[in-house]
Design a protein around this nucleic acid. Sequence first.
DNA 1: ACCTGTGAATAAGTTCACAGCA
DNA 2: TGCTGTGAACTTATTCACAGGT
Lengths: 207, 207
Amino acid sequence: MRYSRIPDEPIRRLPIYLRGLLLASEQGQKNISSNNLADFVGVYPWQIRKDFSYFGDFGTRGVGYNVGKLAKEIKKILKLNISQKAALVGVGNLGMAILAFPGFGIYGLDIAAAFDVNPKKIGRKINNLTIENFSKLGTIKKRKIKLAVMAIPRKAAQETADVLVKAGVRGILNFSPCYLVVPKKVKVITIDIAMDMARLPYYMPAS
Amino acid sequence: MRYSRIPDEPIRRLPIYLRGLLLASEQGQKNISSNNLADFVGVYPWQIRKDFSYFGDFGTRGVGYNVGKLAKEIKKILKLNISQKAALVGVGNLGMAILAFPGFGIYGLDIAAAFDVNPKKIGRKINNLTIENFSKLGTIKKRKIKLAVMAIPRKAAQETADVLVKAGVRGILNFSPCYLVVPKKVKVITIDIAMDMARLPYYMPAS
DNA sequence: ACCTGTGAATAAGTTCACAGCA
DNA sequence: TGCTGTGAACTTATTCACAGGT
């Protein structure tokens, strides 16, 4: 490693590059330049090169990057080279959409368990996955599940997060529109759909 | 306005503060200090004060902010003081979850139309909203809809964005995992669920 | 000629520390 | 005393420009 500390922003962008590389790969590309990748992802080429420079020399001067090799390197950095299992908590409308969503595979992510509190839903099978009783959440520790997706109402969010932390979860993707208090060792990423949408009108000129 | 240019980050955080204020309001709070709001939103109090300072003097020294007044001010800045209508494109699993989602109202956002290409879905009524044929998307101009939510497969994303832009849309909330090329006057915010989740393992210590 | 990798320059964002007012 | 509002200091991130391989 060439830098003593790796900034946050390059890490945030790595999955974007991975997405672009998979797109290029789909189109049969074996090699890609930073200029070329920039077109796929909407990030400037110098930004891409700088970002990679924090992690190593992945390219060849005068040529570019090998698509497959670069994707593999990024996956390694992001710890996506091994399959990461996740538990879904809350199988409502959004939870159902997440179970049906095909996009996790390319990152090596695997929704390996689903929990709900609604007795009508418990036992139902979706995509080879049986919905389990939320009270059984403690079992994920033994199943080596360290990631969770929370798709539940806001009022239950903090207490559910507490249960997840107790069950050994180290990363939470939170869809509830609220700030979650968790120990420092646990990383939370919140996706607040309404909030993101609420930012759009600001950028539109007066109607 | 006291600053010649308003930075992006404060704007990104304004909806977070709005969310916190609504929470405080729910709990019956009439007044709030930056320290107090900080607890609700997970942002440092000095950051909150600095952010507000770009837009005006909203508080009272020694006292704090009036919850209702501050919320109103933020809404005005974000152009959320008038109801903003949005069109949903793609009523699959995720689209359905978005239609059912109750969280848009607090921001004055209103999903006022839904479109799909699937003939089996067209004509179906969800929440007082009839799913329309995607070919009728041009009608949103007359209906004064300037926002769109895209919940469709990636392969259709760019062409759909092109159609939306032609129909006069000025803001797009994009759930497809790809970069969209649009004119500068159009603002795109992309939510890539798998990508956000893919960032979590990096922060978890080796298992 | 072409494209990467990276110090240096610039820009943006955060944190501090305290003046100013209730 | 308590809390806001904000220049100034500091930190982080982006962009440039070009040396250095292929």
